[in-house]
Write a protein that binds this DNA or RNA. Structure first.
Lengths: 407, 407
DNA sequence: TCTCTAAATTTAGTGCATAAATTTAAATGA
DNA sequence: TCATTTAAATTTATGCACTAAATTTAGAGA
């Protein structure tokens, strides 16, 4: 008869196996000896865990036992490699008018990226769900990856999301659109939800300007303005997922809103249009206020247009004040401006840096993101990978379905 | 020869022993059977760990094997109790002009509280260190506890403190006054440092209005204003310990400062004094502006003084705006006003609640602290207890010195 | 004294780990 | 060709922590 053992007994194996996976991810080909050094475990344990991880599908053992150019004395070491293609994840960004999906392997390498138009409003919930389906299917096909291999999907939304992934907002749109249930039911995937600005922060720390920064604020600024905050490397959520919301912060102008850089660039640009009919700004939009975009204002300012320059100064002042207030309270090392206008916003940085001491005792470093438009979906990929890495031992890569009970 | 076993092997024992201690703290007298139920461990394991914890000094086994009124069939259960007096901790609050120390046992019960005047400035560092020594000695004596039994000391300071307990400020005072080193060297105690507002937040969640609240802001408001923030039950620090700083937040008045309720109550009260020479306010301070205190303004307002009432309205507006800004960004469930004027500040709450929606989409619940003057030292006690509880298995209660190598 | 009962203790077996001894798979040189 | 060298893999002997099942024990009551 089988005599049982505590669930807690296996804790040690879980801890050590996690340490091994962590040591192997991104380390390329490794030998047992190298793993002994990096984990502090004994050789017997290292080999035993490697065998098990190979069986579970997370590792591959290389055929040729000795790499070219390796040290050639002694018995050849067995060589293991973390199998980047053992599984995959999907990161999705649901925006106001488009939706983006990235499929990535376990190394975080993007295998495909697909963008589709997406109408958030005046469309039946079913139709929105279908778009989700279609974009995931298309991204998977383009990546050449089977749906079975997907171990987690993370979805970024422009709404407060609590720590346990509930969308908490009064907006009718989200109440009638339960992304989690839709994706989970249709595909059986594990679905994670997170606020878009929070995902931008993860992306920025993963591949952007903020690598290695543990206390970070990312301002996701387009037509709207939101922020994602990392403290000691951990995302903050607050009671109802609202940590990082910015409405009302800038109460001086009586605006009390969450409009972003693009919104004000265009709005103020239009105001400036009236002032000077012969300007570059005027030329760019053909004198038609409705045709004036934020990009035109940045362009005109770069070309030396005086009115546009004034708009940018005003923008810089507004952003400096917002960032100053946040920095006082949150004390980040670095603030990154990301989102649709990040590249253009670079022009605002010198003015902001200059004004920053006026608004905070503890001015942070400032930077703009270079990750571009896909920042939220990229962050979603990182978010999904975090989940899979943390639960690796409970998940089964598709190549080796369910080996739980095996000897 | 002894054949070794992994340090990691003992991890299981550590985890289970911690779970046992957690289950026993505050649970009073428990039997093995009860512990089996609350921890899910088997009887053999529970008993084995109890024996070990008794040996280490954390538990006591009761002599009379069956409590009066207990169920009386069967072999009497061995009865264990967490030994509240196994060790003690000290919580210290270093204020601008006084210093407070509390000695508490492992149950968190205060055994003594001592306050001494403390001059932060214009006094040699040695003298300040001596005050620390004297207050600790006096508090211990008053508590009837030996210095050996102290397993941790937490000290609250009115300066930014990083997550790892470094005081990070440009102030000369702290640079020349290394509390950690002083206390550690003179007594060998483990010393923890933490910001005073952060400790107030811990106290408020432990014994105050905020019990069970995981997303909490505590405004520590006296002459100065600072805040301690808990997110998901965890204190926030930021890059240089500045998380929760409030200077410049209230930039509308152009004040950009960190002055608190008491400061402005007195300041604005003095201004109001000029306006109306026949008021209650006037009577309270004898018409002498320098003699007017914050308490007088609160008192006069309660008595119906119109000018004082106006000052309070202005204060409420200022606090509402500060709390509103914080609440937008931090999204707490509850904001507690604590510190010297907490009791008086209670009168501000209705006005603040009314104005709150003007400053944030997500108005939190508001409350004032009832923990009084000792809130910071009380929080320091909780902080020290947290440390001891987390490291219980690495620390040795004084009654049973060093049993490491014992069988 | 005998029986009942719940708890404690003992016994047998499992999982995961280490250290030391032994074996193994190339590479090399006599 | 074949012993030698070497680093790695395996095997062997132990240890710790746990569980389940069998056994013993301490008191209460018939």
């Amino acid at each position: 008869m089988l005599i049982g053992t505590a669930p807690s007994t296996q804790l040690v194996r879980r801890v050590n196996a996690s340490a091994m996976l962590k040591a192997m991810r991104g380390a390329g080909v490794v030998t047992g000896t190298e793993l002994m050094a990096s984990t502090g475990l004994s050789r017997a344990t290292v080999i035993s865990i490697c065998d098990e991880l190979v069986r579970l599908g997370w590792l591959q053992e290389l055929e040729n036992q000795r790499g070219t150019g390796d040290y050639v004395k002694g018995r050849p070491a067995r060589r293991f490699i973390f199998d980047d293609s053992a599984a995959s994840v999907i990161g999705i960004d649901i925006g106001a008018n488009k939706i983006t999906a990235i499929v990535a392997d376990m190394a975080g390498t993007s295998l495909s990226q697909v963008t589709m138009p997406f109408r958030a409003y005046n469309v039946p919930a079913d139709e929105r769900a279908d778009v989700l389906d279609r974009i995931a299917a298309e991204a998977l096909e383009k990546a050449g990856v089977s749906a079975d291999s997907v171990l987690a999907v993370s979805v970024g939304v422009a709404a407060p999301v609590s720590r346990d992934g509930e969308v908490l907002t009064a907006q009718e749109f989200w109440k009638s659109f339960d992304v989690r249930r839709i994706v989970a039911e249709r595909h059986g995937w594990q679905v994670l939800l997170e606020n878009d600005a929070n995902l931008a922060a993860l992306a920025e720390r993963w591949q952007g300007t903020a690598q290695g920064v543990d206390n970070l604020v990312v301002m996701l600024a387009g037509d709207r303005l939101g922020s994602g905050i990392l403290e000691s490397g951990r995302l903050l959520h607050g009671q109802l997922g609202g940590f990082g919301e910015l409405g009302y912060l800038d109460h001086v102008d009586g605006v009390g809103d969450t409009y972003g850089i693009a919104h004000y660039a265009a709005l103020w640009g239009r105001e400036a249009l009236d002032d000077d009919a012969g300007s570059t700004l005027h030329a760019l939009c053909g004198g038609e206020p409705a045709a004036l975009t934020a990009e035109m204002v940045f362009k005109a300012s770069a070309d030396g247009d005086r009115a546009a320059r004034t708009v940018l100064d005003r923008l810089a002042h507004r952003m400096a004040r917002a960032i100053g207030s946040i920095s006082t309270l949150v004390n980040p090392e670095l603030v990154v401006i990301a989102g649709a206008v990040a590249a253009s916003a670079h022009a605002l940085i010198p003015a902001m840096e200059e004004q920053m001491p006026e608004f905070t005792f503890t001015p942070p470093r400032l930077a703009t993101s270079t990750l571009g438009d896909g920042i939220v979906s990229l962050g979603a990929v990182r978010h999904a990978l975090d989940y899979v890495e943390e639960h690796a031992l409970d998940l089964y890569p598709a190549s080796q379905p369910n080996q739980t009970a095996a000897g």
